[in-house]
Design a binder for these strands. Sequence first.
DNA 1: AATCATTTTTAGATTAGCTTAAAAATTTAT
DNA 2: ATAAATTTTTAAGCTAATCTAAAAATGATT
Lengths: 220, 220
Amino acid sequence: MEISHTEENYLKAIFKISERDGKPASTNAISSEMSTSAASVTDMIKRLSDKTLIHYERYRGVTLTGQGAQIATHLIRKHRLWEVFLVDKLHFSWDEVHEIAEQLEHIKSQGLVERLDEYLGFPKFDPHGDPIPDADGNFAIRKQVLLSELKHSERGLVVGVQDHSTAFLQYLDRMALVLGTPVEVLEYFEYDESMRVLISGEREQVLSKKVCQNLFIQKR
Amino acid sequence: MEISHTEENYLKAIFKISERDGKPASTNAISSEMSTSAASVTDMIKRLSDKTLIHYERYRGVTLTGQGAQIATHLIRKHRLWEVFLVDKLHFSWDEVHEIAEQLEHIKSQGLVERLDEYLGFPKFDPHGDPIPDADGNFAIRKQVLLSELKHSERGLVVGVQDHSTAFLQYLDRMALVLGTPVEVLEYFEYDESMRVLISGEREQVLSKKVCQNLFIQKR
DNA sequence: AATCATTTTTAGATTAGCTTAAAAATTTAT
DNA sequence: ATAAATTTTTAAGCTAATCTAAAAATGATT
Ligand SMILES: [Mn+2]
Ligand SMILES: [Mn+2]
Ligand SMILES: [Mn+2]
Ligand SMILES: [Mn+2]
C-alpha cells in the first residue's frame, strides 16, 4: 500500500501528540500540530482510517494502530539518524538540522536507514538528546530530570532539551551548555525561580526559570 | 517562487533531452522520458512557461531559460553528489544508488550541497563516471570514446557507462570492469562486431558489440 | 433542563498533477 | 497538391490535499 509524504507527517504528529498528552489525539490538536485547518484533518482521518493506520471514533480522538505506530516510529528513527549525520559528519550546528531532517525522513529505500545507522556507529540519541528508536521501534529510556527539579548542590550532565527552538539552542551554545556538560546547582532563588549553577566545574552562571525548565539533566 | 518536486523533474528531463538530441525537446520526447501522457506534458509546459523556466513555441519544442537550466544542473549536481555519498560512504554498489538519489536530489537546503561536496572531497565524477557540475553549473569535460571506437592494440581506462541499467552495471561487476580498469583491444571480430580485450593486463575476455558500445574509455 | 461555547464534521470550492478520447496542426508520402 | 500519418493540443474528468463557511454534535454553565 502506497503511503504519501503527507500521510506520514500526520502519523508522526498523532504519535507525538498521543505520547505528549497520554490520550487520543483530538482533531484540533492535530490541526494545530500540522498547521492546517480542522476540516483538512477530518478529511485525512478518513483516509488514514480506511488504510487501517489509525483507530478513530468521531468526536473522540485518534489513536495509531500497530501498523500506524510502526510507520511513525520508523519516521522518527530516520529523522533523528539524519540529524546525527548532519551534525557529526557535515558539521551543521544543532539548531540548523531539524528542517533538513524533516525532508530526509521521507526518503524511501530498503537498506538506506540501516546502512546510515551503521555508518554513524549506531547512535542511541540524536543531537538534541532525543532517543533514536531501534529498527523494531523501541526507544532507549534514560532517567532524566529537568534542571529545575534539582536541589541545592545536586549535580548532573546536560543530556537533552525540551524546547527545540533555534533561539534556545543558540542560547545554550553561547552559555557552553552543550550535551554532556557537567552542571551543579550552587544556589536557588525563590524570588524568580532562577538558579546559580556551576558549568563544567569552572564557570558560574545564573540561569532563568525558563531555561531550567527546558534542560534535561542526568543526575550523578 | 515555489518550485515543486514534479516541476524539477520536468526541467531535468528537458535538460537531458536537449543535451542528448542537440535540439529543443518535443512533447513526445518529454512524455516518454517522464513516463506520462503527452497531454500531461502540454499541461506542465504551460506552467513552466508561465514561470519563465522554459521557452516554448507550440508544435516546435521546448528549451530551458537560464533560470530553468540553472535549476536542472543544480539538480544533477545534487543527484550525482548523493550517489557518490551512497557508494563511497555507505558502501552501496553502483547499481543500487540511482533510485535513492532520485529522491535525495530534491532535498532543499541552503548549505547542504556545498557541505556534502566538501565532505566527499569535491569529487568531479559520480560512481558511473558522469561529470558532477560545480556550483556554477559547469561540467568537467573529459575526452572519452566508446570502447567500440578503439582500434586493435589501442589501450585505455574504463571511465564511464552510457547504459545505466542495473543489468549492465551488474554485468560489468562480474567482468571486473569497474571504473579505472585498464583495457587493451587484442582482436576485433567483424562478424558480430565483438572484441577480445585484455582486462587489467591479466585477463582476456570477449565483449559483445552491445557492451563495447556502452563503455566509455579514456585513451592513453 | 435549557442555553451557550467549543469542537468537530459536512458542504462546496480550489489547485497540482494526472488520465483518456477527440480535435487540430504539422509533417510525410503519394 | 492532396491525402495519410504523426504529433500536439484541447476537452472533460479524476484524486489528493488543501481552504472557508455553515451545520451539527458535544461539553460546560447556569
Ligand atoms: Mn528534529
Ligand atoms: Mn516530515
Ligand atoms: Mn532532534
Ligand atoms: Mn549517476
